[in-house]
Design a protein around this nucleic acid. Structure first.
Lengths: 206, 206
DNA sequence: CCCGGCCTCCAACTTTGGTTGGAGGCCCGC
DNA sequence: GCGGGCCTCCAACCAAAGTTGGAGGCCGGG
């Protein structure tokens, strides 16, 4: 019996392409939808084995959040993330939300079908570039930013001053500077603009 | 006789989706290719009326450059850009490269087919959000950055210091600061990190 | 229980960035 | 030929940002 798939992507063109690619390969596409909300409605009813999920879904629920909610259902489907970006932040969010796999949209239809079969069996499947990122993250002994540091960095990237950040977070400017010292050291830079550039490059912010 | 279309997109899934959407609508897809180079090879031979072009094409020629080269051919095809982003920089580059239209990938298949018909007649077709950006750009009396200002801003966004920028451009730091004063005023901000954030938001840098 | 990481804060200092109000040369279009 | 935009440069000042070398409280794991 063939694997039952539900497609979540906000682009109609991509939905149509996926459907064609999967049905050509003998898979059964039970539905294709454009929003996370719609996916949450249909999954309990249609019981797909695998949900193919885009991360960027326009307004409303995003792909990672939808994945988390789907995985919280009784007898949840496997979720295979299929997206354009391989930023570290996206990958980590998706995996920690419970995704069984992470593929990029430049995948060939054949790879994609193989990945769905693998995901249906509950085995993890990662695109090569995604795997590389994860491995290098494990190897590099986690010069990883803490939650607070990331939060501060994100505000810096928006153009906020230290004073503004302090106000918004109800801490002193001294503390903001302390966090930034850590951030600069971890990213190997020495000023805030370089930090946002490097963070973007590494994908810790988008 | 039906409109002849050639598809250029680096994602096989999207190519398949586009092909399905267009053929369902009675259009004739003469080929779909993944690179600009391949498009340049096939167009003189297949003579499509309209080329549907993604801007992001991975390695090699990008969509804007490919558009420019296609439009330089004898009896060139119309080029309809179909992409994910509506950044000002992308839009301007595409239009000035000779694109006849600019649509976003969240378009419905029906809209897309209508746009192709319009483009085939040589009329311009813009997605609403793209049109809005263009109009607001015309209305706002061109608080537009000069070449030099953009160059400096781009280096700022990379995290370069004023001193580093001065060195690289063979000008003094005073000049760099002068340019930045202009940039800040035009973008309505008062520091370099906010400037890069705003520039990114407006799509003047990516 | 104590160690380590995280978050908070401080003072005092140096450096960089940003502001103000200029100026001159160049080139283009009117 | 001249006005205007662009690019260049200057001095001097003020305001942020970044550095250094601390410290204390909290929490979770060994």
């Amino acid at each position: 019996m063939s694997v039952r798939v539900l497609i979540v992507d906000d682009h109609p063109i991509v939905r149509q392409g996926l459907r064609a690619a999967l049905e050509d390969g003998g898979l059964s596409v039970v539905a294709d939808v454009g929003t996370g909300e719609r996916a949450l409605e249909l999954v309990p009813e249609l019981r797909p084995d695998v949900v193919v999920m885009d991360l960027q879904l326009g307004a409303g629920l995003d792909g990672a959040e939808t994945t988390r909610l789907l995985r919280a259902l009784p007898e949840p489907p496997r979720v295979l993330v299929l997206t354009t970006y391989d930023s570290e932040a996206d990958i980590l969010r998706a995996i920690e939300a419970g995704a069984t796999g992470y593929l990029l949209k430049d995948a060939e239809p054949g790879e994609l079908r193989a990945a769905i079969a693998t995901a249906a069996r509950g085995e993890t499947v990662l695109a090569p570039s995604v795997a590389t990122r994860l491995v290098s993250r494990v190897r590099a002994p986690a010069r990883t930013l803490t939650a607070r540091e990331t939060q501060v960095l994100r505000m810096v990237a928006e153009g906020a001053s230290n004073a503004a950040i302090a106000r918004e977070l109800f801490i002193t400017e001294a503390t903001v500077k302390s966090h930034l010292v850590q951030v600069f050291a971890k990213l190997g830079v020495d000023n805030r603009t370089a930090a946002t550039a490097e963070a973007r490059r590494r994908g810790v912010i988008r």
